[in-house]
């Protein structure tokens, strides 16, 4: 087995006195897509925030290509090549669609993605490039959020519930675009509440429950029963 690209080691996270994550250890290998599932409030977003440096960790709790990076600030983590499509899209409302994309690429990391490539993937964004990003429809905003993350040419991309609040048909088209996105030698962590979706796009799954990993395994080997037991804690 090759060395992991990204790992968390006994990761913990706190909001004040409240502990949201307990001893989370996950691995993502190069060019691998893993899924993280769990009910509302399980700690999925918190895990993403910890990895990306938005929540501070002990240095050794997050390891990137063999280096302890848990103590890095979020902008330093971004420079490593870790990008995120955050929950709820979180576009910059004062920036146009194009500016949102450009700012995603402002670190100047080299790679296959450019403004043109993103426009090719989502042609509608080119059409609407000068519109304030938050004036778009939900699905189009999600495209901007994905494009913005791609613009940094990351080595790994974290998707936090990209289907949240979108119409089924749009979810379908975004998931159809996913292979094109991740197919470029990138790794990905996909956070989903939709278990079927998560299992279908990933090679391995981790299930979170109340801040702990309640189940992990290969996506094609896990049974529905095992997953629902881990998911709902029944």
């Amino acid at each position: 087995m090759p060395d992991a690209l990204l790992s968390t080691r006994e990761l913990e996270a706190h909001y004040g006195d409240f502990q949201a994550l307990f001893g989370i250890s996950i691995d993502v290998f190069p060019e691998e897509v893993i899924a993280i599932i769990g009910a509302n409030g399980a700690g999925k977003t918190t895990l993403m925030r910890s990895i990306t440096g938005l929540l501070r960790n002990e240095p050794e709790m997050v390891v990137w290509k063999g280096q302890s990076v848990g103590g890095f600030r979020a902008d330093q983590v971004a420079h490593l090549g870790i990008a995120m499509v955050p929950e709820g899209r979180q576009l910059f409302q004062s920036l146009s669609v194009k500016e949102n994309l450009i700012i995603g690429g402002q670190m100047g990391r080299k790679g296959p993605w450019s403004l043109e490539k993103v426009y090719e993937l989502f042609p509608i964004l080119k059409e609407r490039r000068n519109v304030p990003a938050t004036a778009l429809s939900g699905g189009q905003q999600q495209m901007v959020a994905i494009g913005r993350a791609l613009m940094s040419n990351p080595d790994i991309l974290l998707f936090d519930e990209i289907s949240l609040g979108l119409a089924p048909i749009i979810i379908k088209s975004i998931y159809e675009a996913l292979p094109k996105i991740i197919g470029q030698g990138m790794s990905a962590i996909i956070v989903e509440q939709d278990i079927a979706k998560a299992v279908s796009v990933s090679s391995r799954v981790y299930c979170l429950q109340e801040g702990r990993i309640s189940l992990k395994g290969r996506s094609d080997e896990l049974t529905r029963e095992a997953i629902s037991a881990a998911y709902f804690g029944v």
Partner: peptide, 14 residues
Amino acid sequence: RAVSDKQDIAQLMG
């Protein structure tokens, strides 16, 4: 403008 809009997310942009 990005930092003014959303400090956290702006940091994710590096």
